[in-house]
């Protein structure tokens, strides 16, 4: 089963705390999941100040800057993993280095039905 692990953190703290993860550590962890065969995709994101929000309303595109809502913690990256069940997904999420300064939302993937 596929789970998306969404990494949220306060961007101002993500890289500035003593326990903040370094890129090398994040790469290493991604490599570990990869070699266990459970990695589908993972990326880190640029800060939320670079985000653009797009909506389609009555056939018209509206574009605004920033995320859809002001929150204390921002989406900083994601891991798409293959796990046996929620417990395994939780284990994978708990060991994401950024979980030490932020939090990880674990969401099961909904398979779209083609009909």
């Amino acid at each position: 089963m596929k789970y998306l692990c969404l990494v949220y953190a306060d961007e101002n703290l993500l890289h500035s705390l003593p326990e903040s993860p370094r890129d090398a550590e994040c790469l290493e962890y991604a490599e570990r999941i990869h070699s266990s065969g459970r990695m589908l995709a993972a990326e880190a994101l640029q800060p939320v100040s670079t985000a653009t929000t797009v909506r389609m309303r009555q056939g018209k595109v509206t574009i605004t800057d920033g995320p859809f809502a002001e929150t204390k913690e921002q989406l900083a990256g994601f891991y798409l993993v293959e796990a046996r069940d929620l417990n395994e997904a939780i284990q994978l999420a708990a060991n994401i280095p950024a979980a030490r300064v932020g939090c990880v939302e674990v969401r099961p993937i909904r398979e779209l039905s083609p009909e």
Partner: peptide, 14 residues
């Protein structure tokens, strides 16, 4: 059902 919470007694570590 949807998040697939497994039907098991947790492992020692958990």
């Amino acid at each position: 059902r949807t998040a697939r919470i497994p039907y098991e007694v947790p492992a020692r570590s958990e």
